[in-house]
Nucleic acid binder design. Structure first.
Lengths: 240, 240
DNA sequence: GTAAAAGATGCGGGATCACGCAAGACGCGG
DNA sequence: CCGCGTCTTGCGTGATCCCGCATCTTTTAC
């Protein structure tokens, strides 16, 4: 059994290496990559079916890497080991996990014991292990209650990218007015109005820009989500 | 000699502790805090004059903490030990360092040797030590060449916060038209036009929103910068 | 001290945005 | 089949944004 570690921080990497070999005696080979790009390559070369990796890496972030790995070999088992449970990450991950694949998401702040357990559950038992805190996010993003619809999230990304209403309409194949409707309901859910109008008409906001910032502050968006969205946009622009 | 370590990652924290005591034999007490808030408190309690800390912490980020520490005791020597050299961080740090204070900025990706050297240079010799890569950023942000003026950066933050032109004008005590001028020059420098107009009028951008995203992708802005800006805005709104 | 450069302000117009109103389109339980 | 809610679309309006043109002030340079 081979395990591939993808993690850019040297300290964390060596910690992972030790934990993996300590808690998985059946693992005889440990491979290490120090960024997403290298991770993809090594996963391909070694046909490794067991991966533990960080989200948020400099060269190619974990979600990108996971997507190409799963695209080539959908039965790969991946444990995401991340610092954050941003809704942007959780949403990004659950968007790319193939049907029936075993995967996990545990936070770096979790105890070592929890990490060991997750490793065994996923790699040996083929079970999914999602950290409690992360699970909360997932509920919020899937169950509409208080969370954001896919269409709302979609349009959030579009305005974050700086697309114009008309451009969004073209991209999502909607009429101009529909785009604006979605925008309104997004503004509503993000509470952009509350902080805006209030008492004085003095401190009014530019709703569009404000929505993006509020979303970032709420961890609905983060750098890597923007990065991915930007890449997708470039693709779309190329294919026109 | 007392040294205060402020770092939220347990692995990094213990690494720091070892490195500090190994490279600074004259240090007899090492105190540890696991977030910015606690860091401020311990710095106050222990009157510690030597701090090494992370930027990017959950509860209260490094720049905030450093500012209050320096406000209370400007001769404190602080070594920032960070994963990133985002222009947003560099700018944030150099904005708050008091005149004549000794401080340092080294990346976590640097060698352990470099860290040891920095520790001794700053804490013993009272010299400033800035990582090469970080220095590059500093040049770009201070020397206008190819970088951004303070006024441009200021307005960038304002639109990122979602302020309206009129609101910015009030906040910065400018006329509406001046604000728009600054915006234009910001758009220019961020190359928002290039990606926008080009050939087809199809993929046009909303310049305002686009500028923010481009700035984020270029690391001119990041989460903690937004966080700080938002707090400042709230203050300003309160004092009207 | 004067000239050039940089910045601030006003005016005005065309484009875009935010959004109320109302009419069709689609799915869903009775 | 009908009624109901959700989603989509069109039209129109007022606010806001982007920006060219022209004037005036401040800073910088020599």
């Amino acid at each position: 059994m081979k395990v591939l570690i993808v993690e850019d921080d040297p300290l964390h990497r060596s910690f992972l290496r030790e934990t993996v070999s300590a808690s998985l005696p059946e693992c005889d080979v440990v491979i290490e990559a120090k960024n997403g790009e290298e991770g993809e390559k090594l996963a391909r070369d070694h046909k490794s079916a067991h991966v533990v990796m960080d989200l948020q890496m400099a060269s190619r972030n974990g979600i990108e890497a996971a997507r190409t790995i799963w695209k080539e070999r959908p039965d790969t088992r991946i444990l995401f080991w991340s610092n954050y449970s941003d809704e942007a990450y959780v949403r990004g991950v659950s968007r790319i996990v193939p049907d029936g694949a075993a995967y996990g998401y545990v936070l770096k702040s979790a105890s070592e014991e929890r990490l060991r357990l997750a490793l065994r559950s996923i790699f040996i038992e083929a079970q999914c292990v999602i950290d409690r805190e992360v699970r909360g996010m997932q509920q919020k993003s899937l169950g509409q209650t208080k969370g954001f619809t896919d269409s709302e999230y979609e349009i959030l990304i579009d305005i974050a990218l700086g697309l114009t209403d008309r451009a969004i309409a073209r991209r999502r194949r909607l009429s101009l007015r529909s785009v604006q409707n979605r925008l309104q309901q997004l503004y509503e859910k993000l509470d952009v109005y509350q902080s805006a109008g209030e008492d004085n008409e003095d401190g009014r906001f530019n709703l569009r820009a404000r929505a993006v910032t509020v979303a970032m502050l709420r961890k609905l968006l983060n750098y890597s989500a923007l990065e991915r969205a930007e890449a997708e946009l470039a693709d779309w622009l190329a294919s026109h």
